[in-house]
């Protein structure tokens, strides 16, 4: 659906995007993840034909963003990061204006506006369509921006930081909506919040310092970052020292640390390899008639991985600045 090949963008002497290539499948919900200044917005701006690439190409549905710019723009709905809108217009008026710019025939514009207004909760539960845009709260502006992007029912929706500046309820609603949209659109959203991308997307592209750091499904990425397995257990029925000694004897256990948790003892068990020791621990507890209230695997989280990438980027920047 979308093919990005060797994309590079210089802003004057600043390199914002450095030779990025990736492919987005039709119907995917792709999260574009990276720390601030990683080049996310720049890539999206090139994809939506707002900026030209310094080198490299992007094709959407086989059409090049540069040579078939208008054709690409017809297929993309775009919500820029700051959701710029004309303050003096009313919601409905603005959407009708945009519908006209989007090549929607005059007879179908009203229906299109009603459809997106309903989908983005602008007409119910409260009718906001007659409000002036300057009077709207951040959350509603965001919805208007999204509604605008969906007017022409585009094959691809590009959302730059769709949940930034929203309150928790709005964030949840926005995420739900994005998931729903994924059913019949290809959605690309950018974010610097991992949890958000993990929840809404079925594919993640992580970029840092203008480069592609990793990409894949959340599960794939998680697998890649899992190190030696670590198990958390909370047990009652013996002193913490006895517990530690007993568990250390399990084959495969490398080290055990303990900490009191009320009457319970919380144990963190590191395995030598990637073996899962949970069943062994359960058996041991059953044998010794200990009470067991928690037993889980504390896998390497994506969060750690992301933090690591971000950290590497900042190190590189510091290094560049020093050198």
């Amino acid at each position: 659906m979308i093919d990005v090949k060797h994309l590079t963008k210089w802003y004057g002497r600043v390199l914002a995007v450095d030779n990025i290539s990736f492919h987005v499948k039709k119907g995917a919900v792709v999260g574009f993840l990276g720390p601030n200044g990683a080049g996310k917005s720049t890539t999206l701006k090139i994809m939506t034909c707002y900026l030209p690439a310094s080198s490299g190409t992007i094709t959407v549905n086989g059409q090049d963003v540069l040579s078939d710019s208008l054709a690409v723009r017809r297929q993309i709905g775009y919500m820029p990061e700051s959701v710029p809108i004309y303050p003096e217009m009313r919601v409905r008026e603005y959407l009708l204006f945009r519908a006209a710019l989007r090549d929607i025939p005059a007879k179908k514009r009203k229906a299109a506006v009603d459809r997106v207004a309903e989908r983005c909760w602008l007409s119910q539960p409260e009718d906001m369509t007659r409000r002036r845009l300057s009077e709207l709260s951040r959350g509603y502006k965001q919805r208007v921006g999204l509604a605008e992007g969906m007017l022409h029912d585009p094959a691809v929706l590009v959302l730059d930081e769709p949940t930034i500046g929203l309150d928790p309820t709005q964030i949840r609603a926005m995420r739900e909506l994005i998931r729903e949209l994924g059913d019949d659109h290809t959605v690309i959203l950018s974010s610097h919040i991992l949890a958000e991308v993990e929840q809404t997307c079925n594919e993640i592209i992580i970029i840092a310092g203008g480069r592609l750091a990793a990409s894949g499904t959340p599960a794939e990425l998680r697998q890649r970052v899992v190190g030696p397995s670590e198990i958390i257990a909370e047990i009652k029925g013996a002193t913490s020292q006895e517990l530690t000694n007993a568990i250390e004897k399990i084959p495969g256990a490398a080290s055990v640390t303990h900490s009191p948790h009320g009457n319970w003892t919380r144990l963190e068990i590191k395995a030598k390899g990637s073996d899962d020791l949970r069943s062994n621990i359960y058996k041991l507890a059953a044998e010794k008639q200990w009470q067991l209230r928690e037993l889980r695997r504390a896998g390497g989280s994506l969060e750690d991985f992301f933090v690591q990438i971000t950290y590497e980027q900042s190190m590189r920047e510091d290094h560049n600045a020093a050198g």
Partner: peptide, 14 residues
């Protein structure tokens, strides 16, 4: 100034 140029120029208008 307001950034609306971005929405305007990403719509299919020349």
């Amino acid at each position: 100034r307001s950034g609306t140029i971005e929405t305007l120029m990403t719509a299919p208008v020349t």
